[in-house]
Design a protein around this nucleic acid. Structure first.
Lengths: 124, 124
DNA sequence: TTCTTATTGCAAGTTTATTGCAATTACCAT
DNA sequence: ATGGTAATTGCAATAAACTTGCAATAAGAA
């Protein structure tokens, strides 16, 4: 664990919403942490492989976002189509459905993604 | 409606799984239909705006896939992590949950995406 | 057929993310 | 501490998906 990795991890810890590599890069530069964008990408890859970070690919965003997995329970997201704000949904209605899908398709399911989009209270 | 647009639409009609712009481009060239990749992208954009085609952004694929919306009921997908095969799931367990989420978040929900990943029977 | 408008192809440009490689840094053993 | 080794980093270049500008072409109406 180097200081650059700690800086990325610390930023993820204090960020409440899923954040992109570019946003991490820009935020750290504002905080006078010298780090290359490539290093941000590589660090995120490492943290993902270590199981500390989750990668999200939200619909129609065209970029990856990351959030800390550690210490957080399984959840999903809702995103405002106008302002892009992302909010956590601390629920998951898919336990039973997963079993049904495994029976129907003969797949072994090991992950799922669920995302809602719409208008946030401010943008309605 | 030009012949190139009809070619794209016809290909989408006879393709059973969500297909990417590059795949459409390559498939049409194999069928000796001269079409530029840019035109494929623009055609897909038009068809999407007309509500004839749905764009999917599957998790960790890093590209957009498209499927015909016309005449098909609402459904979701499951994708094999090994071979990439995508299968339709002709179910949706999210009607009640959507109402709950609207109450909790004060968002107006107007869409959702749901995707399962796992191992298909062949890749297990 | 001719005129007008929409569509297309080509080239160039964006954006997001990855790779190669040399230079630097971290960490372990001494 | 110090030196050696292996991992990490920055820079430059590259890749892949997608978009934009613009002139040439094709479609549809008069």
């Amino acid at each position: 664990m180097t200081r650059t990795r700690q800086a990325v991890l610390a930023l993820l810890q204090r960020t409440r919403h899923p954040i992109s590599a570019t946003e991490i890069f820009e935020q750290l530069h504002q905080e006078k942490v010298a780090i290359d964008l490539v290093t941000v990408y590589r660090t995120l890859h490492v943290l993902k492989d270590l199981g500390l970070v989750l990668q999200l690919d939200l619909h129609q965003e065209g970029l990856a976002r990351y959030e800390l997995k550690e210490g957080r329970e399984h959840h999903h997201h809702i995103r405002c189509q106008i302002c892009g704000q992302i909010e956590d949904l601390l629920l998951c209605p898919l336990k039973k459905i997963t079993k049904l899908i495994e029976q129907r398709t003969q797949f072994i399911v090991d992950d799922h993604t669920l995302e809602f989009t719409g208008l946030c209270p401010q943008c309605q």
